[in-house]
C-alpha cells in the first residue's frame, strides 16, 4: 500500500493558454486534515477540481491509492473519495434523507434499490451529522448550517476514505462555521476520514488542520505544519499583509491578526 491516499504529481492546468496551475506536487497522507489556503484566484479551487476529476490536467497526474484517477471507473473513485463543491444547484424539494441516499449511488447496482445495508448507513450518517430531527425536512427549508450538514451526510454515505471540500464554511455565520469545522474534525477522528479542504479563513485553517498547503499564483508555495506555514514572511509574500502571530492558549495552534496591507509589494521582508 502506498503511504499516501492521494498523490498529486507535477500537475499543471492551462486554460486558453493561461497557466492556472504549474507543477504541483502533493502527497496527502491518510487520516490527516489538510487545508489549502491562498489568495483569491491563486488556483485553490482548480486544484480541488482536478484532484476530483472535474478538470483534466495538461501535464502530470493524480493518483488515488496509487492508481491514476483518470483511468479509474467513476463509481470506484466515488467509493474512496467524496467531493463537495462550494455552490450547489439542484431540486429545492429534495428531503434530507433522500439527499443522503444519493451517497449510496456508487455502492448500488444500477437496477437495484437501496439494500438493508444502504438504509442503515443512510440513518447512521444522518445521526452522525445531528440531523435526526430534520431527516424528513426539505433541504430548502433548512438553515445554511443545516444544509451544509446534510450535504456532508451525503458525502459521508459514500463511505469515503478521503473527503474533499471546497470552502465548506462560506455563506455561514461564525458559529455555524465552527460547528461545521468541528463536525469535520470529529469525523476525521471517529471515522478515520482524511480531509482535504480549501478554507478562506487562515486562522480556522491553522486551528483545525494537521497540515497547511499554501497555493500562490498557481504554484505550491509551501506545505507543512501550521506553525511553519503561518510566518510573517509567508503572510507578507502570499497574502500581502503585515501580521502579528501568537499562540492560542487552548489549542496551542498559531493565530494571527492582520495589522496592515502591504502596498505594491515593495515592502517585502
Amino acid at each position: 500500500m502506498p503511504d499516501s491516499i492521494v498523490e498529486v504529481q507535477n500537475l499543471s492546468i492551462t486554460f486558453r493558454e493561461k497557466t492556472i496551475l504549474d507543477g504541483i506536487n502533493l502527497r496527502v497522507q491518510p487520516r490527516k486534515i489538510y487545508s489549502i489556503i491562498g489568495p483569491n484566484g491563486s488556483g485553490k479551487t482548480t486544484l480541488l477540481r482536478t484532484i476530483t476529476r472535474n478538470l483534466k490536467p495538461a501535464t502530470g497526474q493524480v493518483k488515488l491509492n496509487g492508481v491514476n484517477i483518470h483511468k479509474m471507473p467513476s463509481k470506484a473513485v466515488a467509493r474512496s473519495m467524496a467531493f463537495l463543491t462550494q455552490t450547489r444547484s439542484g431540486r429545492s424539494d429534495v428531503d434530507v434523507r433522500q439527499l443522503v441516499s444519493y451517497g449510496r449511488f456508487a455502492h448500488r447496482e444500477w437496477w437495484k434499490g437501496n439494500q438493508r445495508q444502504d438504509l442503515e448507513i443512510i440513518e447512521e450518517c444522518i445521526h452522525k451529522t445531528g440531523l435526526d430531527d430534520l431527516a424528513n425536512r426539505k433541504i430548502s427549508t433548512l438553515s445554511g448550517g443545516e444544509q451544509q450538514r446534510a450535504w456532508i451526510a451525503m458525502a459521508l454515505a459514500q463511505k469515503p476514505k478521503i473527503l474533499i471540500l471546497d470552502e465548506p464554511t462560506t455563506f455561514l455565520d461564525v458559529s455555524h462555521q465552527l460547528e461545521i469545522l468541528e463536525l469535520i474534525t470529529n469525523l476525521n477522528v471517529t471515522d478515520d476520514i482524511t480531509v482535504l479542504m480549501v478554507l478562506h479563513d487562515i486562522n480556522h485553517a491553522a486551528r483545525f488542520s494537521d497540515e497547511l498547503v499554501i497555493i500562490h499564483q498557481g504554484t505550491l508555495f509551501a506545505h507543512g505544519d501550521p506553525w511553519d506555514m503561518l510566518t510573517p514572511k509567508n503572510l507578507s509574500e502570499v497574502f500581502r499583509i503585515k501580521a502579528h502571530i501568537s499562540e492560542d492558549n487552548e489549542t496551542k495552534k498559531p493565530v494571527f491578526y492582520a495589522k496592515s496591507v502591504i502596498k505594491n509589494g515593495n515592502q517585502r521582508l
Binding site: N54, S74, R79, M81, T85, S89, G90, V94, F105
Partner: peptide, 19 residues
C-alpha cells in the same frame, strides 16, 4: 435516480460516482 443525481450539478454528480 441518475437524473436526480445529474441535476445536482456536474461536479457533485461526478463526485457521487456518476459518469
Amino acid at each position: 435516480e441518475r437524473l436526480n443525481i445529474l441535476i445536482l450539478g456536474d461536479d457533485i454528480a461526478r463526485g457521487l460516482g456518476l459518469n
